[in-house]
């Protein structure tokens, strides 16, 4: 899987993840996906609704967020193609918790944030049998 992301969107994600530190932050990736080529055309920040004391290692959205943003994406002729979140003071590698909650055919963009600075950004996709994630290639342009 090859994921194309503009430099401007990458900077917006990094800035949001740094602002959320030491909590996790996140949002949706909107764009187009065809086979193994994914183009991110926009991002939408979504509030972390996990219990406040758990937000340093957990991120969640509400089903209503999904409903509202899927409808909005459809209306714009885009698709919800993935979501992004941060791993404060941890690698940009999916956790077992990420895998258990993952959807197939969805891009997982994870940003490692250390000492309030975004240090690494990687993309992943769940294997069809749900056993693990495959690493993708993130191309910034």
């Amino acid at each position: 899987m090859r994921v194309a992301l503009s430099d401007a969107l990458q900077k917006r994600i990094a800035a949001q993840m740094e602002a959320a530190y030491p909590d996790e932050g996140g949002g949706f990736l909107l764009g187009r996906a065809r086979a193994d080529a994914v183009l991110v055309e926009d991002i939408v920040k979504v509030a972390n609704v996990f219990a406040e004391e758990e937000r340093h290692h957990r991120y969640a959205m509400t089903p209503q967020d999904w409903m509202r943003l899927e409808d909005a994406a459809d209306a714009r002729g885009l698709s919800l193609i993935g979501y992004y979140h941060s791993h404060p003071d941890s690698p940009a590698i999916p956790s077992e918790y990420d895998r258990e909650h993952a959807l197939p055919n969805f891009v997982y963009l994870i940003t490692s944030v250390r000492q309030a600075r975004a240090r690494d950004m990687r993309v992943w996709r769940l294997k069809p049998d749900r056993s693990a994630f495959d690493a993708g290639e993130l191309h910034i342009s």
């Binding site: 996790e24 969640a60 959205m61 089903p63 979140h85 077992e96 959807l103 994870i110």
Partner: peptide, 12 residues
């Protein structure tokens, strides 16, 4: 009816 995934993640 509508199937709505709950998006959740975290560093573990």
């Amino acid at each position: 009816l509508r199937i709505i995934p709950s998006i959740a993640g975290g560093r573990g």
